[in-house]
Design a protein around this nucleic acid. Sequence first.
DNA 1: GCTATCTTGGAATGTTCATTCCAAGATAGC
DNA 2: GCTATCTTGGAATGAACATTCCAAGATAGC
Lengths: 194, 194
Amino acid sequence: MPDVKHFDPDAVLEQVERLFWRRGAATTGIAEVVAATGLSRSSLYATYGGKQDLYVKALRRYVERRSEPMFRTLTDDGRGLPAIAAFFDALIEARCTGEYARWGCMAANAHAEPADPQVRDLLDRHHGMLRAALRAALETAGDRLRPGLDLDATAESLTLLAYGVNVRSRAGADATALRRGVTAALDALRFTAP
Amino acid sequence: MPDVKHFDPDAVLEQVERLFWRRGAATTGIAEVVAATGLSRSSLYATYGGKQDLYVKALRRYVERRSEPMFRTLTDDGRGLPAIAAFFDALIEARCTGEYARWGCMAANAHAEPADPQVRDLLDRHHGMLRAALRAALETAGDRLRPGLDLDATAESLTLLAYGVNVRSRAGADATALRRGVTAALDALRFTAP
DNA sequence: GCTATCTTGGAATGTTCATTCCAAGATAGC
DNA sequence: GCTATCTTGGAATGAACATTCCAAGATAGC
């Protein structure tokens, strides 16, 4: 008997995600969301709740549908260091060119705004999954790594490096400089025959 | 003949800097600035201009009076890798404990908000000076480094690492985990006798 | 096609915001 | 101590904001 929604909630959430990703949570008004989605305020509030709920849902979508697939690809790659290099290459490419150039990483960006507990959980999850993926890739690199390398600590250091790339790319950092930085970090991990 | 200001503009600017640093530009209202400084709106606007001017001045103060002294210390240290290790130790200590715990780096935080040109310049300057300081410290490390290391690229990679530390510390990252990550990155640069 | 029920558009609400304004106050030279 | 000039406190202004509300519209089962 009831009426049904006249739009696809996930497709709209993707538009909202992109808006918050590009412009930030605090500086984006509901009026902009209405303009970007074409939805009315009624539909927005009935479907997603208030602005903070909407932001959390958009950030969750970002982590689950954008970050985690990349992390899974890295985890499952199996090539070791080349997998990590490919991950960073793709990251820098996405951050510096094309549609999302200078948007940074929505999760990294979220660190700057005062942290709602739900947001904090998502950020810790983002960090934890990236770290785990890098750790898995390092394990498969095996004896191509410097002997005696602390894999957990190295995974953490590469995770921090990725956050650095994400942050600086939003300010328009040069892709070549970022790539050189990443290459230097990865080269330092490599085993070099005496 | 004229009246003179009833407050110290730089001391007040420091209070404002701390407010914007902790809470972010977009989420901080002029009312909060008034409350934190005890100044009236009149004095605020007459002395610093509008909110955006005030924010830029506060960010500039942060870069010049907080970041750059640290960078200079690093540049002038002369010990090489131990200087870099000390720099990161002090950074993590400041970011994770005491008065400024979980505030992150005001410059790193500023990356998340839509970038005013003046802000962008300050962020590039922040990045450039940190990179130059690390580069200088790497040079003095000399033959304690892996042979064939690209110093520019390595300086960039350590700069990105520092931004990663800054970002994650704002989400309450564990100081020990950060220290281990940094140690792993620095250990990978070290020359190890065959 | 009728109806109960949910959705939608857009106006309405009330709060919070940055900024402006002015009367009262303070200062330094005379 | 008088005055020209700047500063200050706090009210005033108007825009922007998130949220609510309701009449009109759309739907699916009968």
